[in-house]
């Protein structure tokens, strides 16, 4: 039993974090048409800011989650500034320039973090009360992993509600389907772009904050995450949130299982999953053709 459950829980934890990053990435692509290369650096910034606010103060569970939230809000403001000052000027340009612009943002953020916090790996201690395992069917699972899974499900629920049962969600879906039409119907598309970008950045920063107590913090830690999240986005179908959810779970769990049973594949499993799925369905799991 444990050989099945253990990689499953670890895979789901990974999936929860990947989904939060991928959901923002795919949302931004779907509406703005931009592949946001800088996404990973907002995740990284989420980790660093959480550490910065948290270390040495209010060493409690409440403290940790408050600071993850506060950091995400601060980074969301930064994301807002980036959208208004940089992105907005680029929408009409060739998509090449867009990718390069977001790449430049990534380098700037990474450079600033390295300047301020240094290149050495840093660590944020998890409050003792979270640093335990709970027993599920006789195997120990870190409590914090379970917590991340639960938060992932909650975020998913909120996003689903936002997209399907609010006015904003309807407009976002409309804009993703046809920008010109949406604009001509009186929707302020530039403002909508800002809102969508900011939601994506909030999710990224939040994921970074959640991840912070479980890994070593490095200025370039976002790169691998964004590449993995991007695999998730492509597998799920570009621009499709449901697809991102499905593929985050698929990629996360398969990565964990394959890594557990065939250790030599660790690290490349997500690409194998991507290659197989794109061969069968080039448009991604839930992507539409064309």
């Amino acid at each position: 039993m444990d050989v099945l459950l253990l990689p499953l829980v670890n895979g789901l934890t990974q999936a929860a974090v990947l989904f939060m990053i991928a959901a923002g990435l795919t949302l931004i692509y779907g509406v703005l048409g931009v592949i946001n290369f800088a996404h990973g650096s907002f995740v990284m910034l989420g980790s660093y800011l959480t550490m910065f606010f948290f270390v040495g103060k209010f060493d409690t569970v409440l403290g940790l989650f408050s600071f993850i939230f506060i950091s995400s809000v601060v980074i969301t403001l930064l994301g807002w500034a980036v959208e208004v000052l940089v992105m907005r000027r680029m929408y009409k340009a060739n998509e090449f320039y867009m990718v390069l612009a977001t790449y430049a943002i990534l380098l700037i953020i990474e450079g600033c973090v390295e300047k301020y916090w240094g290149a050495s790996p840093l660590s944020l201690p998890l409050p003792d009360s979270l640093n335990t395992t709970i027993s599920i069917f006789g195997i120990s699972v870190p409590f914090y992993s379970i917590l991340i899974c639960i938060i992932g499900i909650a975020v998913m629920g909120i996003l689903w509600f936002l997209m399907n049962h609010t006015n904003l969600g309807r407009i976002i879906r409309a804009a993703a389907a046809d920008k010109t039409m949406t604009n001509s119907l009186g929707v302020n598309v530039p403002a909508l772009f800002t809102v969508v970008f900011v939601i994506g950045i909030f999710l990224a920063a939040f994921a970074g904050g959640l991840l912070a107590p479980t890994v070593a913090l490095l200025p370039n830690m976002g790169v691998n995450l964004v590449i993995q999240a991007f695999v998730v986005v492509v597998v799920g179908g570009l621009g499709n949130i449901k697809g991102a959810l499905l593929s985050a779970v698929l990629v996360g769990v398969l990565d964990s299982f394959l890594g557990f049973y065939i250790p030599v594949l660790t690290g490349i499993t997500s690409y194998i999953v991507m290659a197989v799925i794109l061969t069968i369905r080039p448009q991604g799991l839930l992507g539409k053709v064309g």
């Binding site: 998509e95 090449f96 390069l100 990474e110």
Partner: peptide, 24 residues
Amino acid sequence: MKKFGMKSLILFFMLALVLSGCAS
């Protein structure tokens, strides 16, 4: 929805490769 941006995808992965080494 915007058409699948193959060119930017390729650029994305090229940059990803470059990034693993980071700036000089």
